[in-house]
């Protein structure tokens, strides 16, 4: 069994924290894992992508082959579309619906019509949910919660344990907020 994920977003949105939580859960579960990250210049408000591969057998490539991603998990709607060539035939997109407008002409119409043509999309306004629930830094964990029912290879409970592991050193308040964010995300996707 394998599960390949493309994480995408804009530099600074927190996709690497999502990857860290999934990675921790995968190691604890005894799974194989490869996670290709983006560092350096691309972090400065540019497009950011990370490939995350989970499997119960050997994973060779750090990069995903095209047409193989079981999920595109995105902090930004246009950024998810950039990686569509990697999506498997029956793959899911779980994305924030809030555009991040730091470019001169954000293609609102192109993004809207692309989503209308796609099957299996879960779009959630995680930024609004994060604001309404006074957890501005936890939009990424809302997104992870919303996606967690799809993974199969990892359960939501395993991911929550890893939220405790990963955010533990930042204090109980951070853990509690991120667990609550995860639950809010989960309830949105049901």
């Amino acid at each position: 069994m394998k599960y390949d994920i493309i994480l995408s977003g804009v530099g600074g949105q927190g996709i690497l924290s999502i990857a860290t939580v999934i990675g921790d859960a995968a190691v604890k579960a005894g799974l194989q894992l490869k996670q290709a990250e983006v560092h350096g210049m691309s972090q400065r408000g540019g497009e950011v992508e990370s490939g995350l591969r989970l499997s119960d057998s050997t994973i060779y490539s750090d990069l995903l082959p095209s047409g193989s991603a079981d999920m595109i998990l995105s902090m930004e709607p246009m950024e998810a579309l950039r990686y569509l060539p990697f999506l498997a035939k029956d793959g899911y997109i779980v994305t924030s619906t809030a555009p991040f407008r730091n470019i001169p002409e954000y293609p609102e119409e192109a993004v809207k019509s692309a989503y209308e043509a796609l099957p299996r999309v879960t779009g959630i306004d995680i930024e609004r949910l994060a604001r309404e629930n006074s957890m501005p830094k936890s939009a990424n964990m809302i997104l992870l919660g919303a996606a967690s029912g799809h993974f199969g290879i990892l359960t939501p409970e395993q991911l929550k344990e890893s939220i405790v592991n990963v955010f533990g050193r930042k204090g109980p308040q951070m853990v509690e907020t991120n667990l609550r964010a995860f639950d809010i995300g989960m309830s949105c996707s049901q």
């Binding site: 540019g46 246009m78 999506l87 293609p107």
Partner: peptide, 26 residues
């Protein structure tokens, strides 16, 4: 894959109009 004679599979194309998002000074 191509060098080994297999054409990679692709089910969804990148839509037209997706704009690049280059890095910028903070």
């Amino acid at each position: 894959a191509r060098a080994l004679g297999h054409e990679p599979v692709q089910f969804y194309a990148k839509p037209q109009g997706i704009a690049p998002r280059p890095p910028a000074l903070c």
